[in-house]
Design a protein around this nucleic acid. Structure first.
Lengths: 217, 217
DNA sequence: ATTAAGTTGTTAATAAAATAACAACTTATT
DNA sequence: AATAAGTTGTTATTTTATTAACAACTTAAT
């Protein structure tokens, strides 16, 4: 039996992105519950914590295939295991990171990402000051070595934390050497072939929302 | 004349959040055009760059009040100025940052945020190893001094980059001492009074989307 | 000067997600 | 054992965002 089918008919790829985005938040909440020795949690309690509608919670959770028990709620341990499984957070997906500036360095050093399925195996930069150094067991290489390492390690995911102006060149290089998914932390829109997955993380968008709410309310 | 009204009738707070989130991306693109000495850009060109519909571009831009000229397009310099004005990216909003770990340190050091309207004026932590150090002219204080500094500097925005378990306590402290908006980088959902603005930045959500697309396609 | 191409910007239609309503079920209590 | 309370999970409605269609306008070319 596949865990990743929601109802036996549809496939997981059908999951709405908003739902997918909420799952890590649920997971964090459930982990906190576990620490406090809470064994069961109801959709109503979850909804209250996130100030959302309980039907939306049950809808979201139903995509993972987990079943709750009426009058009891969901088993917290099972919730945690199921969501981790569903999100592939135990997969230790290998990743290359390009651009070892402040942000890149933080991502490499940030151990928390490991428990969310991401394992950065190498960094790349052109700056001689950072090339060949090691951050938390992650070595930084010159760009030239990307080709060989890519062939050796078979990495599918590339992270862009370069200066904005270098984002497109970096993406081109990644695509050329077999990267399948790109996580772009620059505000630049990058152009890649259709079969390449691109996810943009724009803290500037979040900042725009904050400043707007702060100055217009 | 107020720049921030889209049509004279509505107020800016009416702007849809998706539009607001796209504006920084446009801005980055326009800045790149300016560097390449491009003077005018049409909605079609913008749409092509972001692989989106041109009508959505014109709709988004119309919220900022800017007018394009048919057969010519939008003036790039004016676009840049207008969007910066509209998003308050020249406001140098003061912010306190709590939790000077890897991510917090990166945000403090990251100069790029200054051109997007954010000015982190102080950091706070409990770890004696970081307290009293200075990162890029930003001093790190013990939590005890938050109260006095808050009163002195009149800061409205607080950033949470603490460990997950400390997120709620930190938020409570911020609210108690007059912070109006909280930028939460932990995956924890924090509970605050209704009048407090909360923006959650969850890189785990982005990661969930990437891993899902990578493993189901 | 007139025409035609191409763009903006508005209005309408479609698609998607969040909310609301409801039905079915299960467990604890009387 | 029967009832009632409370929860899950489905279906329907409303709201919101995106896409599509269209009208008006402006500039360049004939």
């Amino acid at each position: 039996m596949r865990v990743k089918t929601s109802n036996g008919k549809g496939d997981i790829s059908q999951i709405p992105e908003p739902t997918l985005r909420r799952l890590p938040g649920y997971l964090s909440f459930f982990k906190a519950l576990k620490i406090n020795n809470v064994e069961f949690v109801s959709s109503g309690q979850i909804a209250a914590n996130f100030k959302m509608d309980s039907t939306l919670v049950t809808k979201d959770l139903s995509y993972t295939g987990i079943k709750g028990r009426t009058k009891i709620g969901y088993n917290v341990n099972l919730l945690i295991e199921t969501i981790i499984q569903f999100l592939d957070f135990n997969s230790q997906e290998k990743a290359f990171l390009f651009g070892v500036g402040n942000l890149g360095r933080a991502l490499i050093k940030y151990q928390g990402l490991k428990s969310y399925g991401l394992h950065i195996v190498a960094g790349f930069d052109i700056d001689p000051d950072v090339v060949n150094i090691t951050l938390n067991d992650v070595k930084i290489y010159p760009i030239d070595e990307f080709r060989d390492l890519s062939r050796k390690l078979n990495v599918r995911l590339g992270i862009i934390t370069t200066p904005d102006a270098k984002a497109q060149d970096t993406a081109d290089l990644m695509v050329a050497w077999g990267i399948k998914a790109i996580w772009n932390f620059t505000p630049q829109s990058i152009k890649v072939p259709d079969n390449i997955i691109v996810e943009n993380t724009s803290i500037y968008s979040d900042l725009a929302v904050i400043l707007n709410r702060l100055n217009n309310s």
